[in-house]
Write a protein that binds this DNA or RNA. Structure first.
Lengths: 379, 379
DNA sequence: GAGGCCTTCTTTACCGGTCAAGAGGAATCT
DNA sequence: AGATTCCTCTTGACCGGTAAAGAAGGCCTC
């Protein structure tokens, strides 16, 4: 409890209800297993197993006797771990997220994506385990956690996690990742979307257009967009898309990479772009969150949007319509992406269970420009 | 892919890169286990196990030979499931959420809570598995999933999931749940917070005060607050807190329970309250999301907030400052709640591993009134 | 130079299930 | 009536590891 409690209250109240301990009166109740029940009822262990897992393999009468005995002994059901070992499936899939799980719960694009996956997975009964791509020393979740398959979502491709996962030979689906022939993937057409956004600004008459790039890894600050080190797939595709439209127009954009994620680094990066003598009349942003930072920076500098500065975002994040002016952006259907990813993974798992092989499947979802109030012709 | 693609693009593009199948050229490579490596290197299986799990138990030279052989054979590491069975721990904790996982990713209070848990858990290496309290037939995640402990977050206490989990005798922590002596719990002082909000309205001079309650289960529409069926813990506590302040002032509030969660049901419920002839001059809401719905309804009815109607929320959700007017609300430190819950659970797990018993721990976090622009004296 | 201790590796016995094949009797077929 | 099939239940092997105790040799110590 490191954060200050709200409004000057005292620290957290910790109430002890007395030293109540669980367990049956002190003596450690021996673990109840199939054998315990089998002995009690007078049948073989296998029959008890069947009573739980294959009800049609034994008579209804015996089954209810077994179930009654199990209930009486406090047996809940077959031990999930043992069952997983014997059956070879766990009923869980992993989702590998960017280094910080925190981010996954903060960013609305990510949460919508996860929500869609959860929804698509619900009827299958598969549970979701969240993993980070950060290998924090001894424990590498991607290596040490049991799961039937994994979704790799916009995470550093150089991360060892991806390699570990492929070596484990489990069904994988890449999302927002450079597609590889052998692994199923789900992507959105970032490049086309970015191209449309850039073309929109060009068509409005802008010629001094700045770029604001994400900065997970690599250099920060002002950079040369043509010699960027490899970054996330989406990041690179969006940059390519912008260049697709800007180059033919003869525009050589200044570019800034922000230091980290979130609106605050974006605000800072925006200042780097807007404080220049040849201030751009328009800015293309890697995301709506970044664009939000630009709006804040512009407000601080007394620059009026869109009259003096056009701002285009990406994602069609819910915040795009909450900020003023509402953001022109590129929409991607995050929920469709989530559903497609979940579907591809369940398909792969099912296939690998029957065939042993998997036929990779590659999905590319469309994007589209959404023009709102943050872009206008240069004044 | 049921939702329409954005902006009239065609349907999703599915690209097949050809029938590439994984696996080493068709023949199913036999599974590599510790024994495979042991045979190869000429040592016992146990020694190979130690090479991975207890490096100090064997000579460095032999260990690197083993690791090299393992690498060559494509062995990634000990099978997580088998290890879990042998060791008795899985490295995962479950978080049980309200029936719909979708909700968990949509509601900002929930996502902040989960984010804080993730952060607190990160150094321990424990992964998070998300479970719903909905028992959808054959598969009951809470029963059939391997985990070392579970967090039960604001979920229907009558749900069988909670019972199953306790019978599994795993470390549990209740969050926003009626505390029980034997099980650790983390709660916020909902009642005191609600009391403060109600008192605030009373102090401003309001006498006709309406209540807007959450409606997960039970009747909807206009209800008698004194004879409500049991609902969530928070819901009940907040209602009690309001009554604590209203009753002494001689106020008997009309109450409406919304049908479901989210702003839309809230808007609808608000209409039920505001369309009454003796329209309240102030409304106490179960949450900020509900309060947001009230603001929308008020706007639709041409009621000016706060001049004609005061609105108080709960939670200090980020949206509280995004809506206009900014909401007077009761702050709870969701992140502290998440951290406390995670800490209590890891403590319980650690203790149960050593002692076999667990000493339940009960935490009550403070709440505090935050006055903003949505409340004012009645006109 | 014998006893003791440490290091390094092996042995044996589980962890708690499921699969696949088999065995015994009743029911069905011919 | 004998052969076949079905229904139930049991047997034996295995899933892939880990814990704990034991054995073999080397190094110290006194």
């Amino acid at each position: 409890m490191t954060s200050p409690p709200p409004h000057g209250h005292g620290s957290a109240i910790v109430a002890f209800y007395g030293e109540v301990s669980t367990g049956t009166g002190g003596d450690v109740a021996a673990r109840v297993t199939l054998q315990t029940i089998a002995d009690r009822v007078g049948v073989s262990r296998m029959t008890v197993s069947n009573a739980f897992s294959k009800p049609d393999q034994l008579s209804a009468a015996l089954r209810s006797r077994i179930l009654a005995a199990a209930d009486e002994l406090g047996y809940v059901g077959p031990d999930p771990t043992a069952r997983a070992l014997a059956r070879g499936t766990t009923g869980t899939i992993g989702i590998v997220l960017t280094s910080s799980l925190r981010f996954a719960f903060t960013d609305q694009v990510a949460t919508r994506f996860l929500g869609a996956i959860a929804e698509e997975l619900a009827p299958t009964g598969l549970a979701i385990t969240l993993l980070t791509s950060a290998d924090s020393g001894a424990i590498v979740p991607a290596r040490d956690l049991a799961m039937d398959g994994a979704l790799i979502y916009s995470c550093d491709p150089t991360s060892s996690v991806v390699e570990v996962l492929s070596r484990r030979r489990m069904p994988l689906v890449y999302v927002d990742q450079d597609p590889v022939a052998e692994v199923s993937s789900v992507n959105v057409d970032d490049r086309a979307g970015a191209r449309a956004a850039a073309q929109h600004l060009v068509d409005l008459g802008h010629r001094r257009i700045g770029l604001l790039l994400s900065g997970l890894h690599g250099p920060h600050g002002v950079v040369d967009p043509d010699t960027l080190p490899p970054d996330g797939h989406a990041s690179r595709q969006r940059l390519l898309g912008w260049q697709d439209a800007l180059r033919p127009a003869g525009i050589i954009p200044p570019a800034v990479r922000q230091d980290g994620t979130g609106p605050e680094p974006a605000r800072h990066a925006a200042h780097l772009l807007l404080d220049r003598p040849d201030r751009p009349t328009a800015v293309l942003c890697f995301s709506d969150v970044v664009a939000h930072g630009v709006l804040q920076a512009a407000a601080e500098l007394g620059i009026e949007v869109p009259r003096e500065l056009s701002v285009a975002g990406f994602d069609d994040n819910p915040i795009a319509v909450q900020v003023r002016p509402a953001l022109t952006t590129v929409r991607q259907d995050v929920e469709a992406k989530g559903r497609a990813a979940a579907a591809a993974l369940t398909a792969a798992i099912a296939q690998s269970r029957t065939t042993g092989d998997i036929t990779p499947q590659h999905v590319l979802l469309p994007t589209g420009l959404v023009v709102r109030d943050s872009t206008a012709p240069p004044s």
